[in-house]
């Protein structure tokens, strides 16, 4: 595909998610909650893929940007009482944007000094930054410190979640599939050669960082208004790692693969939970035959990850992609 009908596809995705959100009342609320988690993880993984995958800057601080966006959006919507549907939508959109923008500014502030570092050094600095953000929220009484922050409105719905996810995918793909955007991959492949070809590598890296942080902030806002309770520990180092795993598993710089990985890795723990909850199976006398899965769920999840990393280090979903030439 030449990516020529991208805008139409984006519009179709937005309309579809709006349509589904109108019928969301008929969907079981647990299923909806898992669906929102999938959408949020797609946003996080695809935006991190721009930084880690396409631009090759290993960042471990994505949860930090998510926290900035989540807390910002929650504090804004908490100022308001019950509103009619239209006003609530406008408020939520504004709050999400504000969260994204503040996360982007944070990304700029963190990116400018740190992006001259490479590889492991950058990973360590971004990891440290993510922890600093978490500790700041943990000690900020205005947002409940370690007690957490209740989010009054459950504004997150199918439209906002998957609409934002569609916009994220569009922006990242549109950026990369252009003469301008090939620069991101050039920076990843060889920084010295990229500079020699007239590419301002610092600017490209900071751009990737800021765009990635913006969408992570949006995802944070959606998360806050879905789970309706924020704790600083929800944005810890493990959350950053979980997003990195989605990117690596999907294949660095492979957006469709990363989307699939985000879906699978969100469903996997839920699937294991469901398995543990099966009351009986024909032919097996014991009740809850898979109850052991419930206790060892996270161990199984970790073992699967280790196994995948050992057998498919290049990512689960690497396929030959046709180069995209303008027709």
């Amino acid at each position: 595909m030449t990516f020529k009908h991208a805008k139409l596809l984006l519009l179709a995705a937005l309309l579809l998610s709006l349509l589904i959100s109108l019928f969301a009342g008929r969907i079981n609320s647990y299923v909806l909650f898992v669906l929102y988690a999938i959408g949020i993880n797609i946003i996080l993984a695809v935006s991190l893929n721009l930084i880690n995958g396409y631009t090759g800057q290993f960042s471990l601080g994505h949860a930090g940007f998510m926290a900035v966006g989540g807390y910002t959006a929650a504090v804004i919507t908490n100022q308001f009482g019950d509103l009619n549907a239209f006003a609530a939508g406008a408020l939520f959109f504004g709050a999400l944007l504000a969260g994204g923008l503040l996360a982007a500014v944070t990304g700029l502030l963190v990116g400018l000094p740190t992006l001259r570092l490479r590889g492991d050094y950058l990973a360590i600095v971004t990891l440290g930054f993510g922890e600093i953000i978490r500790v700041i929220f943990q000690n900020m009484n205005a947002v409940g410190a370690a007690r957490g922050l209740s989010v009054m409105h459950g504004y997150t719905n199918f439209f906002w979640t998957f609409g934002t996810a569609a916009v994220t995918v569009y922006v990242v793909t549109a950026l990369v599939h252009s003469t301008y955007g090939r620069g991101f991959i050039a920076v990843r492949d060889d920084e010295v050669a990229a500079e020699a070809m007239g590419i301002n590598t610092t600017k490209y890296k900071v751009t990737a960082f800021v765009v990635g942080a913006f969408f992570a902030g949006m995802a944070g806002g959606l998360y806050a208004h879905s789970i309706q309770f924020l704790t600083p520990s929800g944005f810890n180092f493990m959350q950053s790692i979980a997003i990195v795993v989605m990117v690596i598993l999907g294949g660095m710089g492979n957006t469709p693969g990363v989307i699939i990985a985000a879906i699978l890795l969100t469903l996997l723990p839920e699937g294991l939970r469901w398995l543990a909850g099966i009351p009986s199976l024909p032919g097996i006398a014991k009740a809850y035959p898979f109850a052991w899965v419930g206790n060892t769920r996270m161990i199984i999840y970790s073992l699967l990850l280790i196994g995948l990393m050992l057998t498919r280090p290049q990512g689960l979903f690497t396929w030959k992609r046709r180069p995209i030439l303008p027709a």
């Binding site: 991959i185 050039a186 492949d189 060889d190 010295v192 990229a194 020699a196 180069p323 030439l325």
Partner: peptide
């Protein structure tokens, strides 16, 4: 020092 993962084009 080519961009090894990119195509010739």
């Amino acid at each position: 020092r080519l961009f090894s993962s990119l195509t010739v084009f």
